[in-house]
Simulated assay, not measured.
Amino acid sequence: MKPTRASRITIADIAKKADVSSATVSNVINDTGRMTEETRNKVRAAMNELGFVKDYTAARLRTGRSKLIGVLIQNIANPFYGEFSATFEAELSKHGYLPIMANIGESLDRQAAMIDEVIAHGVAGIAISPVAGTTPAALENIVSRGLPFVTFVREVNGMHCDFFGADDHHGAHLAAQHLLAKGHRKLGVIGGLASTSTGEHRLSAFMETVNHNHDSAIELFTRRCTPSRDNGRNAAIELITEHPEITAIFCHNDIIAMGATAGLKSQGREVGKDIALVGFDNLPEAEVWNPPLTTIEMFPKSIGTEVARALLAQLDGRHVGPLVNRRPPVLIERDSSRFQLEPQKASVS
Rank of each mutant, 00 (worst) to 15 (best):
P284K: 10
V123A: 04
R327W: 03
I237L: 13
R229V: 06
R202P: 10
K67N: 12
A23W: 03
F152L: 02
S129D: 13
R185L: 10
H121K: 14
P291E: 03
D31Q: 14
C161W: 00
D281F: 04
D167G: 05
C225K: 00
A59T: 13
R110E: 09
L180H: 02
G33D: 13
K54I: 12
N213W: 05
N157M: 08
E333T: 14
W289S: 09
M114K: 14
D31E: 14
L147D: 04
S22Q: 12
H169T: 12
F250T: 03
F221Y: 15
D167N: 14
T247W: 00
R223A: 13
A236Y: 00
D230S: 09
P130I: 01
I246S: 07
R34A: 11
K17P: 01
G199T: 04
V123P: 00
A276P: 08
S22H: 09
H173S: 05
G96F: 06
H252N: 15
A59V: 10
L147H: 08
A90N: 06
G105T: 11
D116P: 02
E89Q: 13
A18V: 07
E106P: 11
E285L: 12
T247F: 00
V324P: 02
M101A: 11
T151C: 15
A175K: 04
A77D: 09
A276T: 13
T196R: 01
A346C: 09
T87D: 08
S204K: 11
I332S: 06
M101E: 06
D55Q: 03
L264G: 05
S302N: 13
R110D: 04
L179F: 03
K17I: 05
V118D: 02
H173E: 13
K273F: 14
V43Q: 09
V131A: 08
A6P: 01
I115E: 13
I190N: 00
I218W: 04
A124M: 15
I73R: 02
A346R: 04
P292E: 08
V307D: 00
L312M: 05
I128R: 05
E245F: 05
T4G: 04
P99K: 12
A59R: 15
G192M: 08
E342C: 09
L139K: 07
I332R: 11
A236C: 06
G199A: 10
R327P: 00
R338C: 07
A176Y: 01
A90T: 07
